[in-house]
Computed example of a mutant assay.
Amino acid sequence: MSAAAVIANGYYIHPLVTPVAEEFGVSGAMIGLVPALNQIALALGILLLLPLGDRINNRKLITIFVGGQFLAMLAMALSGNFPIFLVASSLLGFVTIAPYLLPAYVTQRVDPARIGHVTGIMTAGVTFGILGSRVGAGLLGHYFGWRSAYWVGVACMALLVILLPAIMERKQDEKPSSVEPPRYGALLRSLWPIMKSLPEVPLGGLIQALSFGLFLALWMAIGLHLPRNGYGVDTVGYLAIIAIVNVLGSPYVGRFADHLGAERTRVYFCVMQLIGVCLLPFAGDNLWLLVIAIIFNSIGGASVDICSRTILFSRAPEIRTRLMTIYIVIMFVGGGLSSWLGAATYEFGGWTGISVMAAVYALTIMALSLLGLRVGRSRA
């Protein structure tokens, strides 16, 4: 649940794009900059800050960065104009490191044979936060105004700053060892050689960049499309409730990946994601068909992520935080660009435009996943 709470902050904007844009007097393409720069700033923060997890106590780092999220959320809740809101959202992204320190922290404390299962549980928490933020923000925005969602986020971060240090009690294996950890500069310089020696890690990051980008672009388009067709922002929240169904299956996806092989399992769920995308051209005016498309996309996309992380966590546990850095940086650069592209595509191409964009993404994801299966077989 901690992972859900700390990841949720960056996604309150998705059901609220229309009322926020109206209050600040900006266009749909301009409001798309908010999630786009948030995700790109997150990628930059992960690149510069996440490697510190291989050097500094994770408990301390997480507490500091959650405190940073509290301050950024407070600035967003109080912002009086669009530039301040945009800058605060970008700063929020930069310090949103805790969701990616927590999985590395947890997976170092389980048996290697259970990494897929545990990764599924952690991913379920992240997915619940991403989708649950849409539910909560949509309902709060509809009944109490869009700022109320951010005030709830401020309260949650204040609570976590107090609770997380107690939850993450210092373990015996966290005590300083006699081995001097790598210096910060050396950590950053090591990322490129790691990418060359473990090509499945950047490949997984690229797959997830497109999969996550598809997810964000679709939800940005939904947030713009439904209010323009007579639905309230609460309807976007209700759709997110349906999408949360994939949270229940995430731990089982991890077990499936443990037994069948993560590369092969990833291909299967790419097919499910592609089926969901194929439904989109017919779902623009049909809410029930849109529900089915969202379910297929959500389950497929979340499962692709679980499989890619299972591959990552099965490699070189001593540098797991840096492997996560590579994966997440690539993922959020793609996600950030796609957030803006989704809003801009819908603004200029309507629902047909977003459907074509989604199809291109899904087909590319499938091709890269088949390549990943081939790379996995070559390592076996």
Rank of each mutant, 00 (worst) to 15 (best):
residue 270 C to Y: 00
residue 301 G to F: 13
residue 243 A to Q: 12
residue 251 P to G: 03
residue 37 L to R: 08
residue 365 I to M: 05
residue 370 L to Q: 05
residue 288 W to D: 00
residue 66 V to I: 05
residue 243 A to P: 12
residue 379 R to F: 08
residue 76 M to G: 06
residue 329 V to I: 02
residue 337 L to T: 07
residue 155 A to Y: 02
residue 232 G to T: 05
residue 79 S to R: 14
residue 129 G to A: 04
residue 47 L to M: 04
residue 269 F to T: 09
residue 8 A to N: 11
residue 92 L to Y: 11
residue 177 S to L: 13
residue 232 G to R: 04
residue 263 E to N: 11
residue 58 N to M: 12
residue 331 M to A: 07
residue 50 L to W: 05
residue 334 G to Y: 08
residue 182 P to G: 06
residue 301 G to R: 10
residue 240 A to C: 04
residue 206 L to C: 08
residue 227 P to M: 00
residue 352 T to F: 15
residue 32 G to D: 01
residue 367 A to L: 11
residue 193 P to N: 06
residue 203 L to W: 03
residue 27 S to F: 15
residue 197 S to T: 10
residue 209 A to N: 10
residue 296 F to H: 02
residue 329 V to E: 00
residue 65 F to E: 01
residue 361 Y to K: 00
residue 259 H to S: 08
residue 117 H to C: 00
residue 248 L to I: 06
residue 107 T to G: 01
residue 274 L to T: 14
residue 105 Y to P: 05
residue 282 F to E: 09
residue 309 R to P: 12
residue 276 G to P: 11
residue 357 M to T: 05
residue 48 L to W: 07
residue 366 M to H: 02
residue 378 S to R: 10
residue 211 S to F: 04
residue 346 Y to I: 09
residue 92 L to T: 09
residue 268 Y to S: 13
residue 25 G to P: 13
residue 70 F to E: 03
residue 139 L to W: 06
residue 183 R to M: 08
residue 256 F to T: 08
residue 3 A to L: 15
residue 196 K to V: 12
residue 107 T to F: 03
residue 136 G to D: 00
